[in-house]
Simulated scan of single mutants.
Amino acid sequence: MRRSARRRKTVSAFWEGGTAVVAIPARFTKAQEEHWVSRMVERLQRDDARRRGPRSDADLAARAAELSREYLGGKAEPASVRWVSNQSTRWGSCTPGERSIRLSHQLQGMPQWVVDYVLVHELAHLLVSGHTPRFWALVDRYPRMAEAKAFLAGVSFAASRGLTPEGPPA
């Protein structure tokens, strides 16, 4: 916790060397300090967990079940959902006959709403094969579909030109 004489009203929290730091106005009482430190550390941890997204195959399967319930009426029921490292040209794939969904490990670290879009896309394939209008009507139930598709298109575009988060190739 850091008190700041310059800070008047706002409270902020951030990670610094693996430690949560909460910055508060110097005039806050001990009770206000306790309230805000507790609230902001909880928010940091929640945001961290959301940003990391599902890490294990079990987490991924649980997330797929949630998304199926929320956007597909619970009708898409995969037998397995897992991360794979041998998929470099597709973000996800589905084998309806086996009811299996595989997501590329390259999605790990991307925003959760992007991973969710890919999951909804693959879940919809359990209900409709091919990319028919009926299929897209199901996928379109996911509110951030267009944004996620654009995000993935941008990632693909950058990768095809050798661009990395660090900048253009040397």
Rank of each mutant, 00 (worst) to 15 (best):
A124N: 05
T164V: 01
V128G: 05
V155G: 08
V120W: 04
M145F: 04
V118W: 04
S129D: 12
M145C: 14
M145Q: 14
V118T: 07
R144P: 06
H131S: 15
S129H: 14
R161A: 14
V120F: 00
D116L: 13
K149D: 08
Y117H: 00
A153V: 00
R141H: 14
P143G: 05
S129I: 11
V155Q: 13
R134T: 04
L163K: 03
W113C: 07
L138S: 07
G167L: 12
L123S: 00
P165I: 05
V128A: 06
E147P: 05
D116P: 10
L163F: 13
L126P: 05
A124S: 09
V120R: 08
P133Y: 11
W113H: 09
R141V: 07
Q112V: 09
D116H: 07
P165H: 06
E122Q: 09
D140P: 09
V114G: 13
S160A: 14
V155I: 11
A137Q: 15
V115C: 07
L152M: 02
T132N: 02
A153E: 09
H131V: 11
A153D: 13
Y117C: 01
R141I: 08
H125N: 08
T164M: 06
L152W: 03
S156H: 11
W113Y: 09
F151Y: 15
R134N: 00
W136T: 07
A159Q: 03
A148R: 10
P133V: 01
V155Y: 08
A124L: 00
L123D: 01
L152G: 06
S129Y: 07
A159K: 09
S156R: 14
F157I: 03
R144Y: 07
L163D: 03
E166S: 05
L119V: 03
V139I: 06
P133H: 10
A153C: 03
F135P: 12
L119A: 00
T164S: 12
Y117M: 01
